[in-house]
Simulated scan of single mutants.
Amino acid sequence: MLEAVVKSKNGIHARPASMIANLSSKYQGEINLYKSDKKYNGKSIMSIMSMGLQENEVVSIEVIGDQADEMELAIKEIIDNITD
């Protein structure tokens, strides 16, 4: 499990949520995102948006399945590179 800090002043909004969900939906395994110990489906745009992630909040990324480490890094990279 990896952690990422939201750097965008706008938090995680529709566009980055869509990017995460689109990447995740291509993965055969399970993808979960956590905020304050509450689990969200990383393959669902609506679930990601419902997290209400704001600037400086931490999200944990859990991927279960083949090549989990690579997928965790790819999702973390999306979150790390959200600037707007």
Rank of each mutant, 00 (worst) to 15 (best):
S50L: 04
I48K: 03
T83S: 11
H13I: 06
E77M: 13
L2P: 01
K9A: 11
I82M: 02
N22G: 11
E30F: 08
K35L: 08
I12W: 01
M1F: 08
K38Y: 06
D37R: 07
S50Y: 01
N10P: 04
M46W: 02
K39T: 07
G65M: 15
M49A: 07
N41A: 06
L33P: 02
E77G: 05
D69C: 04
M49H: 04
V58F: 00
E77P: 04
I12R: 01
N10S: 14
A14F: 09
G29Q: 13
T83G: 00
S60D: 13
Q67N: 15
K7D: 13
V63P: 03
S36V: 05
Q67H: 12
N10Q: 04
L23A: 07
N81V: 10
S44V: 10
Y34R: 06
G65Q: 10
E30A: 06
I75V: 03
M51G: 01
S36G: 12
R15W: 02
V5F: 06
M1K: 05
L33N: 00
Y40G: 04
I64Y: 08
I61F: 07
A17G: 12
Y27D: 14
M49N: 03
G29N: 13
A4V: 02
G29K: 10
I45V: 15
K39A: 06
N32I: 08
A74N: 12
S47W: 08
I12K: 07
M46N: 10
K35M: 09
I64N: 13
Y40Q: 05
N81S: 10
T83E: 15
K38H: 04
L53N: 05
K39Q: 09
S25K: 15
N10L: 14
I79V: 14
D37H: 07
S8Q: 14
G65C: 09
K39F: 05
S50C: 05
L23D: 13
L73T: 07
N81M: 01
N81Q: 11
I78E: 13
M71Y: 07
S25I: 12
I45G: 01
A4G: 00
G65N: 12
E62G: 03
N32M: 08
I78V: 11
I31D: 08
S47A: 00
I61T: 00
M49W: 01
L73G: 06
M19G: 01
M1E: 12
N81C: 05
K9L: 02
A74I: 00
I20H: 09
Y27C: 12
G29Y: 14
A21V: 04
N32F: 10
N56F: 08
L73F: 05
S25V: 11
I20Y: 05
G42L: 04
N41W: 08
I45S: 03
S8L: 13
I12S: 00
A68V: 05
V5M: 14
R15V: 13
V6K: 00
I31Q: 02
S47K: 02
V6C: 06
S44L: 09
S25L: 14
P16E: 03
E3Q: 15
E55L: 04
A14M: 14
M46D: 08
I31S: 07
A21I: 07
S47V: 06
A17E: 11
L2Y: 10
D80N: 13
E55T: 03
N22Y: 10
P16A: 15
A74Q: 14
Y34E: 10
I45L: 01
S60A: 09
M51Y: 02
E70P: 03
